[in-house]
Amino acid sequence: MNKEEVAQFELETLELLKNVMDPEIEINIVDLGLIYELYYDGNEKINIVMTFSTPACPLGETIKTDITETIKQKYPNFTTIIDVVFYPEWNTTMVSEAGKKVLGM
């Protein structure tokens, strides 16, 4: 895979993650702005740096499982590594335009 193909794959994966919902807020985690970074090493390994809307989010583990399983469904041999960070702290400016529409902002 060349650089462009990797970038294209990362965009497609981000699009795929729009299927992962925050069950409380009822909006997908990409539009909610929870995904800080997503990069593909070109060798069946996806690294994700993400956050939650609150550090003690009771759904945190479930959302992580949802991400891993969603990627696994499409790419069964891939490994997904998720790194959860709380800096920078998530805030409403991180919500996408589509997300703002859903939330009525």
Binding site: C57, G60, E61, D83, V84, V85
Partner: peptide, 10 residues
């Protein structure tokens, strides 16, 4: 990576 609290739920 931060320790997630979901695992602590009874």
């Amino acid at each position: 990576m931060s320790d997630l609290k979901t695992n602590n739920a009874p």
